[in-house]
Simulated assay, not measured.
Amino acid sequence: MQQLKLTYDKKCECRVCKQSFTTKKLRSRFVRAAEFDSDFCPNYADATTNPLLYHINTCPHCGYSESEEFSPYFPPGALDLIHSKIAKAWIPQDFCQDRSIHAAVSTYKLAIYCGTLKREKHIIMAGLQVRLAWLYRNMKNDIQEQRFLKLSLKEYLESYMSDDFKGSSISETRIFYLIGELSRRTHQAEQAVKYFSKVIELQNRSTEPKLIEMARERWYEMRQDQKTAAN
Score class of each variant (00 low, 15 high):
Met1His: 09
Met1Val: 12
Met1Tyr: 07
Gln2Arg: 10
Leu4Phe: 07
Leu6Phe: 13
Asp9Met: 07
Asp9Trp: 08
Lys11Arg: 14
Lys11Phe: 03
Lys11Trp: 05
Cys14Gln: 05
Cys14Phe: 04
Arg15Val: 01
Val16Asp: 04
Gln19Lys: 14
Thr22Gly: 00
Lys24Cys: 00
Lys25Tyr: 02
Leu26Pro: 01
Arg29Glu: 12
Arg29Asp: 00
Arg29Val: 11
Arg29Cys: 02
Arg29His: 06
Phe30Glu: 10
Phe30Lys: 04
Arg32Phe: 00
Glu35Tyr: 06
Glu35Phe: 10
Phe36Trp: 10
Phe36Glu: 01
Asp37Leu: 09
Ser38Ile: 10
Cys41Gly: 09
Pro42Cys: 07
Ala45Ser: 12
Thr48Asn: 15
Thr48Arg: 14
Thr49Met: 10
His55Tyr: 12
Ile56Cys: 06
Ile56Thr: 12
Asn57Tyr: 03
Thr58Arg: 12
Cys59Pro: 00
Pro60Ser: 05
His61Arg: 04
Ser65Pro: 02
Ser65Arg: 09
Glu66Tyr: 09
Glu68Leu: 14
Glu69Ile: 08
Ser71Met: 06
Ser71Asp: 13
Ser71Leu: 05
Pro72Met: 12
Pro72Trp: 11
Phe74Cys: 05
Pro76Met: 08
Pro76Ile: 11
Gly77Ala: 11
Ala78Val: 11
Ala78Ser: 13
Ala78Tyr: 04
Leu79Ser: 10
Ile82Met: 13
His83Thr: 09
His83Val: 14
Ser84Lys: 14
Ser84Gly: 02
Ser84Asp: 12
Ile86Arg: 05
Ala87Val: 11
Lys88Met: 13
Gln93Ser: 12
Cys96Met: 14
Ser100Lys: 08
His102Ile: 10
His102Asp: 14
Ala103His: 08
Ala104Leu: 06
Tyr108Ser: 08
Tyr108Leu: 14
Leu110Trp: 00
Leu110Pro: 06
Ala111Asn: 03
Tyr113Phe: 13
Thr116Ile: 10
Arg119Asn: 12
Arg119Met: 13
Arg119Tyr: 09
Glu120Gly: 12
His122Val: 02
His122Asn: 15
Ile124Asn: 05
Ala126Pro: 07
Ala126Trp: 00
Gly127Ile: 02
Leu128Arg: 04
Val130Trp: 05
Val130Met: 09
Arg137Ile: 05
Asn138Ser: 07
Met139Val: 01
Asp142Val: 14
Asp142Lys: 13
Ile143Trp: 01
Ile143Thr: 13
Arg147Gln: 02
Leu149Val: 14
Ser152Met: 02
Lys154Ala: 12
Leu157Ser: 09
Glu158Thr: 07
Tyr160His: 13
Ser162Cys: 09
Ser162Asn: 01
Ser162Gln: 03
Asp163Ala: 15
Asp163Gln: 12
Asp164His: 02
Ser168Tyr: 08
Ser169Gly: 06
Ile170Trp: 02
Ile170Asp: 04
Ser171Arg: 08
Thr173Asn: 01
Phe176Lys: 03
Tyr177Lys: 06
Ile179Tyr: 03
Ile179Glu: 04
Gly180Lys: 03
Glu181Leu: 01
Leu182Ile: 01
Leu182Asp: 00
Thr186Gly: 06
Gln188Cys: 12
Glu190Gly: 14
Ser197Met: 08
Glu201Val: 00
Ser206Met: 03
Thr207His: 11
Ile212Trp: 05
Glu213Phe: 07
Met214Val: 04
Arg216Glu: 07
Arg218Ser: 15
Trp219Thr: 09
Trp219Arg: 10
Tyr220Pro: 01
Met222Ala: 15
Met222Arg: 15
Ala229Ser: 11
Ala230Pro: 04
